[in-house]
Amino acid sequence: MPAAKRLVVCGGNGFLGSRICKNAVQRGWDVTSISRSGAPRWDAVTSSATPPSWSHRVTWERGDILRPATYAPFLKGTDFVVHTMGVLLEADYKGVLRGQESPISGLRKAFTAASQPGNPLERRVSESDADIRPPETREQLTYENMNRDSAIMLAKEAAQENVSVFVYISAAGGAPVLPTRYISTKREAESTIASEFPRMRNIFFRPPFLYDSSRPITMPMAAMTGVGAVFNGVTGGIFGNLMGAAGVKPLRVDIVAEAIVQALNDETVKGPVEVPQIEELANQAWRSTMV
């Protein structure tokens, strides 16, 4: 009997990450989640505070995506690695925790036009460095260090461990309410990972807005995004660049999770994966359970 596939999900305790873990263990894979807190707070990602039965088959490890030395040991012997982490708005994270950072201040930082540090490979950041953030943004969560640099460094560590497939959760596009750096840093991560680590089969999922009834706030937001998608279709997509992800059909989070796990095991899938292909991969996953 062949050995079970080994999967590491960085951010496996999150809204999408937890469902990736669920789908993978249901296939009999050996799954490890890495996050700052370890196991999820279940009422934040599902409709119940009680851990689901499948969760006991996942190894919930603690590690800091901004400190490679804390997660690198968990990548040894792994077949697949998935990066699911990112930020929508930047913030002084210590200020947020202490209640000292206001939403207005966070928005001001997010939309700043100030120059940003180059990616960690350009700065020659190594695995032994304590923190991948440059000194000027050490106390802040930025698009550069969360959406771009953390993914690039995780890909670097995965490549060094001869991981066969690396998945980066990118995005379908930005949105009118988000600064352009939200999506530009994701595209920079895709480009750098593809060029610097070609021996891995790199997959860049570009999902739209994700929703699920277990997270009620996502339902009306999905409805609004759905209206935007219809409008974008009716107008022939001429406002697509302006609307970004707000003009793309939203998807249920479980559909995207199923598609990601299906893609990991399908050697034909590589590079950017847009919404139509996400839906097709999810359909393939569903059909495979019917056989």
Rank of each mutant, 00 (worst) to 15 (best):
E139C: 15
Q262W: 02
N202T: 10
T142I: 11
W29V: 02
G77R: 10
A189P: 04
P2V: 15
T192A: 04
Q262A: 15
P176C: 08
T46L: 15
T112I: 04
S33G: 07
F204W: 04
M146E: 11
I152E: 06
L66G: 01
S195R: 14
P52D: 12
V96T: 15
F239P: 01
P179N: 08
V96K: 06
A159E: 01
R67M: 14
A3M: 07
A69Y: 12
Q100C: 09
F197L: 14
Y211A: 08
L281M: 06
P216Q: 13
K94P: 01
P179C: 03
P220D: 05
C21V: 02
E136V: 04
G86N: 01
R206K: 14
A113T: 14
A257N: 06
A222V: 11
V8Q: 00
S35T: 06
A113D: 05
Q160G: 11
W54M: 10
D254A: 11
Q277L: 07
G12T: 07
G11K: 02
H56Q: 15
A246F: 09
M85T: 11
M221Y: 10
S150Y: 00
T218K: 05
M219V: 13
R123G: 05
A172Q: 05
T59C: 05
D266E: 12
L75D: 06
G95A: 07
V81C: 03
A171S: 12
T32N: 03
F205M: 10
K94D: 06
G63W: 00
F209T: 05
P73R: 15
I132V: 09
I260Y: 09
P103M: 08
A257T: 07
M200C: 08
I152C: 04
G233A: 11
G173S: 04
V256D: 07
I255K: 06
Q160M: 13
V31Q: 00
P207W: 03
M153E: 08
P134T: 15
T192P: 02
V87S: 05
L141P: 04
N202E: 12
A223E: 07
V248C: 01
A223F: 13
G236K: 11
T225F: 13
P103V: 10
K109A: 14
W54P: 06
